[in-house]
Amino acid sequence: MKLRDRVAVITGAGSGIGRSTAHLFAEQGAKVVIADLKLEAAQETCEMIRKSGGECFPVQVNVSKADEVQRMYEETLRQFGKLDIVYNNAGVPLSPHNIEDITEEIFDHIFNVNVKGVIWGCKYAVPIFKMQKSGGVIINTASISASRPRAGQNVYAASKSAVVTLTKSLAMELADYQIRVVAINPVAVNTPMLKGFIGERDEQEAKKMYISSIPLGRLAEPKDIANAALYLASDDASLVTGSILDVDGGRGI
């Protein structure tokens, strides 16, 4: 029970990495806020956790909207009375695009969710951590594409590079308050979101292409990322801040 009695907010927890992490955190004793753009998906995750004896509540949030993120934390404090862990996991994919095909709409969508969403997730959590005077943990989902992008990922890779740099900057800024800030770089993860990266390509052929570039020979599973998040959120990582953990089967080598 590495997270006994701790309160964790996880965005994008209605499916994929977020859902798997919410389950694992709850199993490890955390009270979990299941945040997602789709309220029904958040409710489904929460119901699964409650059936397993965990404690949680769902909240609908568009992480690119500062006022909605602020409301998410206000509701967290009303429900659970404190905040210990934030996992800024919500993100959106980009199917292969040549740079000349990137529109302002595509750019804004990717950066609003993948970058602003993380910034707001940090901005409104930090005052709570400082007020509590008991430290805190912020985990951000970046991507191995931040350090080793594939062709056609341009704007997506740039958004995840921003998350990496933000993570390192905030780790320095917040160290005096014992607030740890870390990130995870997943390789392609076997979730519904993967189809958003594949786009119009043949799904099985695209997966084979991804796998062929991963030395350990498989896609990541949501549980792989959840396990990494658990380590980073727990006291096992009490001296870890500013680190970017590659969970990529060797893809970044």
Rank of each mutant, 00 (worst) to 15 (best):
K2S: 05
L3V: 02
L3A: 02
D5C: 00
D5I: 00
R6L: 08
A8N: 05
A8Y: 01
V9I: 14
I10N: 08
I10K: 02
I10F: 08
G14H: 10
G14V: 08
S15I: 08
S15H: 11
S15R: 13
G16V: 00
I17E: 04
S20V: 05
H23G: 01
L24W: 04
L24E: 00
A26H: 09
E27Y: 04
Q28H: 06
G29Q: 04
A30N: 06
A30R: 04
K31A: 00
A35T: 12
L39D: 01
L39C: 05
E40S: 08
E40K: 07
E40R: 03
E40W: 03
E40T: 03
A41G: 00
A41D: 09
A42F: 02
E44I: 13
E44W: 11
E44G: 07
T45F: 12
C46R: 02
C46D: 05
C46K: 01
E47W: 13
M48Y: 14
M48S: 12
R50A: 10
R50H: 07
K51R: 15
K51F: 13
K51E: 15
G53Y: 13
G53W: 14
G53I: 07
G54E: 08
G54K: 11
E55W: 03
E55H: 06
C56W: 13
C56R: 10
P58C: 01
P58S: 06
P58G: 04
P58T: 05
P58Q: 03
Q60I: 02
Q60L: 05
V61P: 09
V61C: 14
V61H: 10
V61M: 10
N62E: 15
N62V: 07
V63D: 14
S64G: 15
K65W: 13
K65M: 15
K65F: 15
D67A: 15
E68K: 10
E68L: 14
V69A: 14
Q70I: 11
Q70L: 14
Q70M: 15
R71D: 15
R71I: 10
R71Q: 15
M72Q: 10
Y73T: 14
E74F: 06
E75C: 06
E75W: 00
Q79F: 04
F80C: 00
L83I: 04
L83P: 04
D84T: 01
Y87V: 02
N88S: 01
N88K: 05
A90W: 11
P93N: 02
P93V: 05
L94I: 06
L94T: 01
S95Y: 03
S95W: 03
P96H: 01
H97K: 11
H97A: 07
H97T: 09
N98L: 09
I99F: 09
E100T: 10
E104R: 09
E104V: 12
E105D: 11
E105H: 08
F107P: 14
D108R: 12
D108H: 13
H109T: 10
H109M: 15
I110M: 12
I110G: 08
I110F: 14
